[in-house]
Amino acid sequence: MNRVHSLLSGREMSIVGALVAVVAVTAFVNPSFVSPQGLHDMFLNASIIALLAIGQTLLVITRNIDLSVGSVMGLTAYLSGQMFIADSGTPVIVVMLAGMALGAACGAFNGALVAIAKVPALVVTLGTLYVFRGIDYGWASATGVHQINADQMSPEFLSFGSGSVLGIPHLTLIALVALGIAGYALHNWRSGRELYAIGSNPQAARLAGIPAGRRVFTSFVISGALVGLAGVLHASYFGTINASVGTGKELAVVAAVVVGGVAIFGGSGTVLGAALGALLLTTITGALPILGVPAFWQRAVDGAALLLAISLDRAVMLRVAERLRKERSLRRV
C-alpha cells in the first residue's frame, strides 16, 4: 500500500480517477470507445503528446518552458519526408536519428539563448516558435514540395508508425521507454535532483554550486531530441506531411504538463504525472465527438484544463501557506 502510494502521488491518483470517469461516461454512451481498437487508438493518440510532455517537464521543473515544440516537431516531420524524397530506401533508424539530431539542435539554440544569454525562456521560445516555423515553410517553398504523401515514403517507415508489439503500438512503447528513462533519471540521479533544485530556488542552487546553466541547456537539448523524435513518429503514423505539422501543439503540451501536476513555477512534478496529463487530455478530446460536442472545442478544452489546473494549484498553495502561518502562530502562543 505504502509502495503504491509512493509510486503514485495524490495528483497522479486523481488524474487516473478523472480518466476512469471520462472513459466510463463515454463508454456508457458508446461502448466501442473501450473496445480493444478504441483503447489502442486512445494510447496511440496520447503517445506523441506524452513524448512532448516528458521533454517539457524537464524544462518546466527548472522554471523554464519551451513554446517552440510544435514548430520543432513540424520541422523534423518535414525533414523525414524530405529524406525519403532524397532516397526512398533510407533506413527508418537513420530518419529517426536525423530527426532527433535536428530537434536537439533546435533545443541547443533555445537552450543557449536561455542559459548563456540569460533571456527568459518564454521570450526565446516564443520567438523560435515563429522562426522555426518560418524555416519549415521556407524549406517547403524553396524545394517546391508542399505536401509529402504516404506513397513517397518507405513502407517500412509507415508500417513502423502503425505497427504494434503484443497489441501495444510502437509509438506507445517508445513513449513508455522515454517515460521510464526520464522518470528514473529525475528520481535517482544527482543531475535529476538538481533540476528540481534549480526550479525550487535558483539562488540557492547557485550557492549550492549547481551548474544551473549547463543543466538547463542540457534539458533543452534532451527535450529538443524528444520533440524531434515525436515529429518523425508523427510522420510515420499519419503518412502525410506538410509544413504546418504540429501547429499549436505547445498549448496541448503545456496543458498536459500542468494538469499532470508539474508546478508552472518549477521545483516539483513528475514525468509520470505529465504523461498521465497527456493521456487524460487526449482522451477527453477523443470523447468529445462521442458525447456530441463538436471537435472544434478541443483547443478550448486544453486551454480550460490549463487554467483550471493552475488555479487549483494556486488555491492549494495559498491554503498550505495559510495553514503554515496559523501553525506557527499557534506554536508561539
Binding site: A197, G199, S200, N201, I210, G267, S268
Partner: peptide
C-alpha cells in the same frame, strides 16, 4: 535559503 520543494535530507545532501 533552501529548496522549499525538496525534503530536508535532500537539502542537506544536495550535490
Amino acid at each position: 535559503i533552501q529548496f522549499p520543494d525538496l525534503s530536508v535530507a535532500e537539502n542537506v545532501f544536495m550535490g
